[in-house]
Each structure stands twice: as structure tokens, then as C-alpha cells.
Design a protein around this nucleic acid. Structure first.
Lengths: 239, 239
DNA sequence: CGGACCATTGATAATTGTCAAAATTCGTGG
DNA sequence: CCACGAATTTTGACAATTATCAATGGTCCG
């Protein structure tokens, strides 16, 4: 493996290696792109983009996770996405001419890679495959959003909680002898804001699941899944 | 104006004239594309695409409107989009490799224009502007979806009803001496399935608005908006 | 270890869903 | 153009669910 990234930041662990949208490019091309990228780190709680802001870069997450959300005037928050390693955002102003449709906040220490509008657009001309990858990723994101809308719209709260736990399991779960341990990206409040329910309701429902032996809370930041099948039944997912 | 469309269907009222994604092309190019298009009509209630189906065409609405929705196993329906003249769908399998993420059903007599996957892809190569237009349209659609998610997630029912009436006003409203008359694309049940509430709840809330003199129901298919300002206040939209 | 932050629990109120029945609207066919 | 039957909508009564507020308990991290 070559060791050519001199940015003093990623130390051979080039962020662009992690990014699906660049996955069709070869090593040499990646190195060229690495030179165009600037980096920036954020602490937990820092705002990376504000809703309504006109961004001039596409931002890729190298490490860490963020929440993307909208606020109502009365302060309620609806989380739309949780992005982590390899995900990108801020593309709205590059692809269409929108300002950001959501606010993005770091959930932990986050390392980002930024590509300016200009550089990104010339990349797109040079490597049209990147555009295809982006369309694919946006398509998947739209599909997830459609599922979320259905979830909040017609599924009951138990269904939704089952669903979010299964999603988190796939993305953040790790097998252990006792079951699958999920390192939660969101606090209880965050999860509630994602599901469109009150923090207290989530607490009660999770407590119930714990009593039924389906899950076990491990502190505030992890959940152990003991009975995956029961959880699937709960999520109402027939497939 | 030229009169060159010989398809015997659109009679000088070429569907592609209506379609934003072809709006960058000139008359000559449009006529070329018109030759690649096939047409099909649907009656009210007919299914145009089923969720999970792998479509091999992009479908453009020439006239009429459709609803795009998902079903839960227990028969509940969540409407995701209402598409009408100039909107397209079925693109999932062409841009990414997804099957349709929703079912599409005609809400009235609908005339469609279809472009097969192959023909569409060669068009994209020939006119890359079309890809840009599609990305823009999908971006807007995603933004609307994000708003809908926020709406169902955190806004109360009154807010949402105010919101849908204002949306419909812009899209389907007509000024009259008495106020703005909306020709509703959806039944009460449809609107309820769009808002994620029960049909009966919608009835009650609309009745309330009528008592307050904000709207007036005109049969089942139209609503007259009497007090737009009050409706804006109701929708909780500060802007 | 301590203090700030986060989560849980309890009691209560508010909202919406559900089921059943009545009323209205719609479109068709005469 | 009217009348009729089907479909849709409205209304009422009640039940279920969830939000809210307040107080307590637990967790995390410097």
C-alpha cells in the first residue's frame, strides 16, 4: 500500500477510501483527489451546517457521527438522518440550487473532509461515475426517508421502536456472547426526536421491552438485544 | 408553432412540453424524443406501478393525477406523494438499481408517457442536462419529503391540516370572488392517509375550521379558502 | 468524587383512534 | 334531468394511547 497522503491528518487512512461515492476510482485517482480535500474537526454539540445556509462544499464524514434535523418554531426537533463514516451532506447547493434543508450537529468528535463546490464540479466532469454513485446514494436516502414517513405516519409506537432498534443493530451492533450490543449514536431524547415521540414514552416502552426480556439497557449509551426474533415481530416487519 | 407530433395521441399538445426535465431542450430535440415515447391511459383506481416491482421505464404524467403510497401489512396506507401533470416516477430502477419503493394508483383518468430504460439512458448520454434536471427534481422531492416527515413527526394535527390546505391551494387552487377554490386531488380518506391521521379526525377538524369561518367545504371534492391568513397562522408557519 | 446531565417514574390531562350509525354526496342509468 | 343506490363523509360515544409536568433516580466524565 502506498503512503502518499501528506495532509498530516489522515495518516494513510485517507478519508476518501471510506467514501462509497469514490469507490469506483483507482488508487492513483484517489490520491489526486486527496490533495483537493480540506479537513475540519468538530466537537460534540457543534453545528456543522445550519438549515437555510447556502453551503459551498460537500462535506464527507471521515470519522464520527452527526444528526441532521429540523426545528419547529416552538423548539421541537425532528431528526431526519444520522450520518456516520463515509456519509456525505451539504450537496444540495451543488446538485440543485437549494440551501441546506436541515441543520447538522456533531454527536461526538467528528472528523470531516470537505470538497469545495468548484473542485467538486470539475471532479464530476472528469469522473461521471461519481455522479452516478451520488444519485444512487440519494436514491437510497430517499427510500429510507419514505420508510421513515410511513413509519411515523401509520405504524404504532411499538413498531417504530422495534424498527429503530433493528436499524441500529445493523449499523452499530456488535455480536457478543450475550446478544448483539448496540452502541447507540443517539441519546434517549435523540431517539425520541427521531421517532417523533416524547422522551418519556420511549423510556417507558424500552422499560417494557426490558421486562419482557427482549433487550437490556447497558448504561445510557448501549442496548443489548437479547431476542432478535421477538424484536422483528414487534417491528411488524413481515418480510 | 410546428405541428409535427404524429403519435395520434397528443395532438400538438406534446406531453414532453409539459415536462420540466426536458425543459432545456429545443423544439427539434423535443420532436425527436417524442418519437421514442409510448403512451398509456389509466382509469381511476388502476394501479400503474406496484411497490417492489422492477420497472423498465420512466413514466411521465401527461394529464391527470396519481397517488404514490406504501401499505402496511394490516392494510393502512401512507401516501408519500401526489403527482400530477409533468411529474415523473418509476425512475428508481433507471438511476439506482432499486425496485419501486411505492405503489402508484390513478386518482382520475390519467394519460401517461413512457420512456423505456434503454431509450432513456441513451438520452441521458446525449443530453446530460437532463440528468441535472432530474437531480434537481429529486432534490426538491426529497426536501418535500423531509418537510412531510417533520410535519408528521412534530407538528400537531391542526398544523398539518393547515399545511396541506396551503400546499393544495398553491397547486390546485383557483381564485374566485369568494376566496380560493381548491379542487381536491384526494378524498377525505386520501388526505387523512397523507397526514397520517384517521379519516374521522380530519372530518372533525375540517368541520371546526368551517365553523370558524376559515374554510367552506363545497361537496366532497372542493374546499373554498375564506381566510388565508388564519390558515397560515394555523399551519404554524412563521415565515 | 462531585456536579451536570440524562433518564425514569408517577399522576393526570389532552388528543386522537375506533366502532357504529346516520347523513350526505356522487355518478349512473333511465 | 332526475332519482336511486352505492360510496363517502360526518357525527357521537367511548376507549386507548401518548403528552405533559414534576419529582426522583442514575450515569458519565473531568
Amino acid at each position: 500500500m502506498l503512503d502518499l497522503c501528506q495532509c498530516g491528518h489522515c495518516q494513510n487512512d485517507m478519508c476518501i477510501h471510506k467514501v462509497p461515492i469514490f469507490s469506483t476510482l483507482n488508487e492513483e485517482e484517489l490520491i489526486k483527489i486527496a490533495g483537493l480535500i480540506t479537513h475540519r474537526n468538530y466537537k460534540k454539540g457543534e453545528i456543522i451546517i445550519m438549515e437555510g445556509e447556502a453551503t459551498d462544499s460537500i462535506i464527507i464524514i471521515h470519522e464520527g457521527s452527526v444528526k441532521a434535523f429540523k426545528n419547529t418554531p416552538d423548539g421541537r426537533e425532528q431528526i431526519l438522518y444520522v450520518f456516520s463514516d463515509g456519509d456525505f451532506f451539504g450537496e444540495q447547493n451543488l446538485l440543485s440550487h437549494q440551501t441546506s434543508t436541515y441543520t447538522v450537529e456533531a454527536l461526538e468528535i467528528v472528523k470531516t473532509c470537505m470538497l469545495s463546490k468548484n473542485k467538486f464540479q470539475s471532479l464530476l466532469h472528469q469522473y461521471p461515475e461519481i455522479a452516478i454513485k451520488i444519485i444512487e446514494e440519494l436514491g437510497e436516502r430517499m427510500s429510507r426517508l419514505e420508510n421513515a414517513l410511513q413509519s411515523i405516519g401509520v405504524r404504532n409506537v411499538d413498531n417504530r421502536i422495534g424498527g429503530i432498534l433493528l436499524d441500529f443493530k445493523d449499523k452499530y451492533g456488535r455480536k457478543t456472547p450475550e446478544g448483539i450490543l448496540i452502541r447507540l449514536p443517539l441519546s434517549r431524547e435523540g431517539m425520541a426526536n427521531y421517532l417523533g415521540i416524547a422522551r418519556e414514552t420511549l423510556s417507558r416502552k424500552l422499560g417494557q421491552l426490558e421486562n419482557e426480556g427482549i433487550i437490556r439497557s447497558v448504561g445510557n449509551k448501549s442496548i443489548l438485544i437479547l431476542d432478535q426474533e421477538e424484536l422483528k415481530a414487534l417491528s411488524g416487519n413481515v418480510f
